[in-house]
Nucleic acid binder design. Structure first.
Lengths: 191, 191
DNA sequence: TATAATATTGAACAATGTTTATTTTTATGT
DNA sequence: ACATAAAAATAAACATTGTTCAATATTATA
């Protein structure tokens, strides 16, 4: 059996990403195996290696779509052109919500150590990051500082969500992540 | 072959931790397999499961010792009772240095998603965390805020190191992590 | 010395990523 | 229309994981 022409190569790639994503959403990153994905696709494991170099390639592709989706969410949120501090607060809230709404996708994207050196991935990262930088520009001294502030904001949100997801240090009980983020924004950005 | 009495059960556990640690240091977290560890110990895989519930138990034990070591490093650093802001800066520096000196141990400890619910681990976490909180107490409004500040500081250091290790966002090139940390401390703690 | 307790092994199982020869289907050229 | 080349998909195999467990070897005990 071969070239069933049900799908073009590109369609097949998208199918793999979609199925992989569904598996991660439903059962978590540990269920993302070549056999699971191709079975859901209606193909056999070998097929995956026609589409991606290895299983990490599929992971990278799933993560890239997560980033693209998140970038789109940000774009909608930042549409209103509210005051910088208000927009900043919305960005932070959106990040926290992403982790809450799709914890498994968040884990695959941010808490799974994988080398993502594809060009697509780097582009998607900047799709998100550049928006954050842009919001920070009006309240930063210059361009470089805005970029650094974006990295610091990103790192902090990241770290707080990691603490929350790992259950370490009683985040979510004693000090909810929302409160930590609020304190950080207030203190750091004088928000 | 059995009960060779070369080691007591406790010695055997320590041996496993030591060998596991050596493997991680030399070859990274991915090389930490039951067979690798027990081979280095001079035993067979089954033995590991007399000592730990599973391989994650060994990981947790290795991470616990990493935390204990880091806590000791902090203790030495904070011995001098310098000014709070100076001590804070030293804590941050120590964290960055830990990642630089032992990147694989750092990755196993902070960038590998594993459930650590042992009591020992929780204790070791607090061995580090309580020192951070203590340093922050004099420059925080009250006890609760000091604890929250500690979590925020921890999250930020964490996130910045993750960015550095993942190679994302050009941390280390355009904006070195040291500079990001410095900016964060200055801005957040008015240091 | 016989027996019980315990430590260790070795082999087995299922699941993983990955490779490759083979087969099946489609495209191409005459 | 047919033969042949190209491509796609498969099935089977391999090595490596974590993990379990009956069998075995050693020590302790009665």
């Amino acid at each position: 059996m071969a070239r069933r022409k049900d799908h073009t190569r590109e369609e097949l790639t998208q199918l793999a990403i979609q199925c992989g994503r569904d598996i991660v959403v439903a059962e978590g990153p540990s269920a993302l195996s070549a056999r699971n994905v191709t079975k859901l696709m209606g193909y056999t494991p070998g097929t995956l290696y026609n589409l991606f170099e290895n299983i990490d390639g599929l992971t990278a592709a799933i993560n890239t779509t997560s980033l693209i989706n998140f970038a789109e969410t940000l774009r909608c949120i930042l549409r209103d052109h509210a005051k910088p501090k208000k927009r900043l607060s919305k960005i932070a809230q959106a990040y926290l919500e992403f982790q809450l709404r799709e914890p498994h996708l968040w884990t695959l994207l941010f808490a799974t150590p994988i080398q993502h050196d594809s060009e697509d991935y780097r582009t998607a990262i900047h799709l998100v990051f550049d928006q954050v930088t842009e919001v920070l520009l009006p309240i930063s001294k210059n361009n470089k500082v805005a970029r650094q502030n974006a990295k610091i904001l990103w790192s902090t949100l990241h770290g707080i969500c990691l603490l929350r997801s790992s259950g370490k240090l009683d985040v979510s009980e004693a000090d909810p992540s929302e409160e930590l983020v609020k304190r950080f924004l207030n203190q750091y950005f004088k928000l």
